[in-house]
Design a protein around this nucleic acid. Sequence first.
DNA 1: AGAGTCGTATAAGTAATTTATATAAGCAAG
DNA 2: CTTGCTTATATAAATTACTTATACGACTCT
Lengths: 148, 148
Amino acid sequence: MAPRNRQDLDAGDLAAVLEEFIRSFIRLPSAERHTFTTLSVLHTLAGRGPMRLTALTATEQITQPAVTQLVARLERDGLVERRPDPEDRRAVLVQVTPAGARIVHTRRQDRVDRLARLSETLTPEERHAIGAALPALARMAALMDVER
Amino acid sequence: MAPRNRQDLDAGDLAAVLEEFIRSFIRLPSAERHTFTTLSVLHTLAGRGPMRLTALTATEQITQPAVTQLVARLERDGLVERRPDPEDRRAVLVQVTPAGARIVHTRRQDRVDRLARLSETLTPEERHAIGAALPALARMAALMDVER
DNA sequence: AGAGTCGTATAAGTAATTTATATAAGCAAG
DNA sequence: CTTGCTTATATAAATTACTTATACGACTCT
């Protein structure tokens, strides 16, 4: 951790920190028996609202047939619903059901709880520093989503 | 994004921001054809140094036989090496080869490049805010790793 | 030395994903 | 309006990755 001066933001340092968080987040209990991809799809749908299969293919880094089958499994388990896209009769819109949303919400809450607990061990200055950076981080994250 | 006051760190906001980054990070090109789990193992080994299979089982959320097989694949592809643990003749130590390290490094560099590019679109104040929060975030991430 | 545990491996079955291909709906031009 | 190209999803077959169950050698303790 060695930014050249206090004005500078070292992208390497930021990447390293994010990597650590990612590692820890991904390995959360996830009591439910779902694969990483499954959870990712649920999470994407919960965050973005109804999507076409094609859109999911793009965001999830798996092939289109894999999405079709994954959604079929999720539907079988009552976690998502499919309905025809009124705008294009070839397309299907997938959306989370309340049961699916509940899974996402539980996982999210686990993470929030964990972060809240950890933040209590930080100094007030540290908490303040992170709090002050959140709007900028949020904007950055949003930008990431846009480009590509 | 609504912290109650500037002193407060809202864990929900932090979790939300991290989620966004995670989503974007995970879906990086990853040109190479490796599963998420495979990349995660490589990354863990690169970051932590040689580890036992058992240790990987704990960090990767998969069963022990799955780790054995995964490591066998990685070894076949020349990305990791196994060697006996001098301390315990039952155990095996797994470590990344230069080829494995290169994959990790490339992915990391992609992320750094992307973050660097994005940070140029931020205001100096935003960059400063993030830079100032990095040490605290790093400490928090390190703590996450420890507790369970 | 025997009983119990630990670290890894193997086997067999199942789940998830891939490639290749099909079908049906939209779309553009003539 | 119909022929040909493209888009959105589905299906089939093969492959890859993972799981449960079990085995086996190495440590540990007494």
